[in-house]
Simulated scan of single mutants.
Amino acid sequence: MSEPVARLTGHAVTGTRRLSGDVREAVLDDGRVVVAKRGHAPGAAAAEAAGLRWLAAAEAVPVPAVHGHDEDWLVLDRVPTGQPSAAAAERLGRGLARLHASGAPAVGAAPPGGPSRAWIGLAPMANVAGDDWASWYAEHRVLPYVRQAVDAGTFGPSEAAVFERACERFPPLAEPPSRLHGDLWNGNVLWDGREAWLIDPAAHGGHRETDLAMLHLFGCPHLDRVLAAYQEVTPLADGWVSRIGLHQLFPLLVHTVLFGQSYAAQALAAARSVSSG
């Protein structure tokens, strides 16, 4: 690991430490601390680097700086560790509103320089631009994972039909596409004691409510403060709370594909709620 870090940063490595899995911390000869991540698939490092740079370009929410990447490795700044605070949560909410408002060329658009074949966690994710949010969300964020779950035996034909009926009821996107983090669960929000940082994006153009629905699904410290501050900057459309389940279909189906039956019932409940709503 030291060789790619030295090559990508231009500095010798004086020490390393494993953080988790294929993620390691490295100390450079100038005293800086960076994180090196080995991509789980070809192009994964490039996809994450493009997403981080796209989020950083909005100058809205802190993200770790990208030092470089190759086919296998991505090297980033190390985010300091600290405790969540209400003030940081409010800054996060205002920053997310500005991030989303910075926009995207289309729903499904990949970050500049990013591949169309991307990932959300370890699951494949297609960044394919579309004209209509509802049909794009069904085609590229719901039905592919339903089919994978059917192939794995997690869902049968009757369960798949529940999702197909839900897709027929998706509302149109009545606002410009937003610049999304795309995998905004609590584990991808790091707190340094003053600010909240975003890591591990699955960035793409989409509906801003999708990011907020992920925060609801997996929890976030001071979430009420995050949402109140967000609303101060860019109020959400009427009825957004009733659409949380709609936007949670995507992460719930991804988790069903990755982790199996434990998320299947929750995904089905969300789909039935959309169908009956």
Rank of each mutant, 00 (worst) to 15 (best):
A65K: 12
R225G: 07
V35M: 06
G113L: 05
H207W: 05
R53P: 01
G239E: 09
S20D: 13
H67P: 13
L122D: 13
L122Q: 13
A50V: 00
V241E: 15
E209I: 01
V63A: 00
F218N: 00
R91Q: 13
L249V: 04
S276W: 01
T154P: 02
D183W: 08
V150C: 13
H69E: 15
C220I: 03
G239Q: 10
G205R: 05
A104N: 12
G205T: 04
P221R: 03
I120E: 11
G15A: 13
P4Q: 06
H67R: 13
A138K: 10
P84G: 04
A203E: 01
P176C: 10
F250T: 01
D22W: 10
T154N: 04
G206P: 08
P62G: 10
E48F: 00
A109D: 03
V226M: 08
V241G: 07
I120P: 04
P171Y: 13
L258Y: 09
P221V: 01
R32A: 11
G245P: 14
L92T: 03
L55P: 09
P4M: 03
R7Y: 08
V257L: 14
E195W: 00
N188C: 01
H11I: 02
A229M: 02
V146E: 10
S273I: 00
D30E: 06
V233D: 14
R24M: 10
A56T: 01
V162R: 12
W73E: 06
A88V: 04
R94V: 03
P84E: 08
G153K: 09
A149M: 02
D29M: 01
A6P: 00
G260K: 02
E164M: 12
L28T: 10
A65Y: 11
V146N: 09
A174R: 14
L74Q: 07
A161V: 01
R141S: 08
V35A: 05
P42H: 03
G15W: 09
G43A: 09
A87M: 10
W191S: 03
V150E: 15
H216A: 02
D72A: 15
H204M: 00
A65F: 08
W54Y: 06
D211W: 08
N186K: 07
H100F: 04
L99E: 04
G121C: 07
I244M: 12
P42F: 05
A44L: 01
C167Y: 15
A106M: 07
P112D: 12
G95A: 02
